[in-house]
Simulated scan of single mutants.
Amino acid sequence: MLRRIVLTATASVAALVAAVPAAGASPLPLLPLSLPLPLPSASPQALDQLTMTVSRTGARTDGLYQLECGPAGGTHPSAQAACDRLEQLAQNGKDPFAPVPKDQMCTQQMGGPETAHITGTWHGQRVKATFSRTNGCEISRWRTMEPVLPNTRS
């Protein structure tokens, strides 16, 4: 697409320069052609940076984690797998950080006391999400985010 725009602009300028002297008018001053178009990023996740605070998991996975994607890095123990999971969810058109809808019926079961708070940027969008395991919907939501969130099943 960018190549087509550049070729069209170049052809238009060349035609204008050739036509003006032929019409007998004074030639227009030639200005340098500047294209302030940003080039597409190499990766849609180039700016993905998430901070996770995981607590009440029984101390084995409690802590503060940084996750960077594009390339995968940070202090997350499974950074590449976590970035891959987020990309997989994005390809399915799902927002992995969306809360459970208020009118959603959920089974009243307790999956555990674990909580996780995620903030940062993902695919250019601000993220501020809280996860828990307080009912069937929240348990499912947590499991969908594994390995971004730790597997808490024994």
Rank of each mutant, 00 (worst) to 15 (best):
R60W: 11
L28R: 14
I5P: 01
S78V: 05
T61V: 14
G70L: 03
Q104C: 04
H76W: 03
L28P: 10
L28T: 13
T57I: 08
G58N: 10
L2G: 11
S154V: 07
E138Q: 15
A79V: 03
L31V: 11
L31W: 12
S43P: 00
L2E: 13
Y65D: 02
C137P: 14
P113H: 07
Q108K: 10
C69H: 05
L39A: 13
T57W: 13
R143M: 09
A72N: 06
Q125N: 15
A129N: 08
V148G: 03
F97P: 03
D48F: 00
G112C: 09
Q91K: 15
Q91N: 13
R56P: 00
R126F: 07
G93V: 12
P113M: 04
G73N: 07
E87M: 05
A42M: 06
V17W: 08
G58M: 10
S26A: 15
G70A: 06
S78N: 07
G74E: 03
L67T: 00
I118F: 00
P113Q: 11
E114Q: 15
T119W: 01
R60Y: 13
T121P: 03
Y65G: 02
W122G: 01
N135V: 06
Q125E: 15
L39T: 14
R143L: 11
P101M: 05
L89Y: 07
T51D: 10
R60E: 13
D95G: 10
P99T: 06
A98F: 02
A46W: 10
T152C: 06
T121G: 05
A9F: 07
D48N: 02
A14S: 10
A42T: 12
P38S: 14
H117V: 14
